Amino acid sequence: MDRAGLIRELHEIAAGMTKSDQHRQVPAEGAGDASLVDQYGFSSLDALEYLLILEEKFDVVFEDEDLTEETLFSIEGLATYILDQKVGETTSSS
């Protein structure tokens, strides 16, 4: 899984969830460090729904102890978390 492609996909999913036209535009490359609240106007319920969508789409599990501010509110943090889980799956199945 390519990191840049994953980040783009995470933005597209988040943008598709927003109700405001102001937040529907996918940010430019390198804008992944702003929070989901700042970028897309997510509420805490939106963030939870987003995580559930990501769990299903990418076949990952967001463990309670891993739900840090960095992981929850940053596209970069989410991408790192998803990629780390995927690398862990590959390593453990080898």
Rank of each mutant, 00 (worst) to 15 (best):
L10E: 07
M1P: 11
A31R: 11
R3C: 05
D84Y: 10
G5Q: 15
F73H: 13
Q22F: 12
L72D: 03
V61E: 12
A28F: 07
D59R: 07
L10T: 09
Q39T: 15
E65F: 11
L48A: 15
T90I: 13
A34C: 08
L51K: 03
V87T: 14
G32I: 01
Y50V: 00
G77A: 07
L72Y: 00
T68W: 07
I13G: 04
R24V: 01
T90C: 10
D21F: 14
E89M: 11
K57W: 02
Q85A: 11
G88V: 01
V60E: 05
S93I: 12
A31T: 12
M17R: 06
A47R: 13
A79H: 04
G30T: 07
P27Y: 03
S74P: 06
G88M: 07
L78W: 04
I13K: 02
T80C: 05
Y50H: 02
E63G: 00
Q22M: 12
S92W: 11
G5Y: 11
V61I: 13
D2V: 03
V60L: 05
I75M: 10
L6I: 05
S20T: 13
E29C: 09
L83A: 07
L67N: 00
V37G: 05
S44Y: 02
S94F: 08
V61L: 13
E49W: 02
A15M: 04
P27T: 04
D84P: 06
D46I: 08
V37A: 10
I13P: 01
S93C: 09
T68K: 06
R8M: 07
T71D: 00
G88H: 04
L83F: 02
E63F: 06
L52M: 15
Q39F: 01
A34K: 15
L36E: 01
A15Q: 05
A28H: 03
A31M: 12
H23V: 03
H11S: 06
E12M: 11
E70I: 08
D84V: 13
S20H: 08
E55P: 04
L45W: 01
R24S: 12
L67W: 00
E69Q: 14
D33K: 14
E76R: 08
M17I: 04
E76N: 14
S44A: 14
V60R: 03
D38L: 10
D66G: 05
A31L: 09
E29H: 13
K57F: 02
G30M: 05
D59G: 05
A4S: 13
G32M: 06
I75W: 01
Q25V: 15
E65S: 08
F62L: 02
L54G: 02
T71V: 15
L10Y: 10
S93A: 14
T68C: 07
Q25Y: 11
A15C: 10
A4L: 14
L36H: 10
S92E: 13
A47N: 09
S35C: 02
I53P: 03
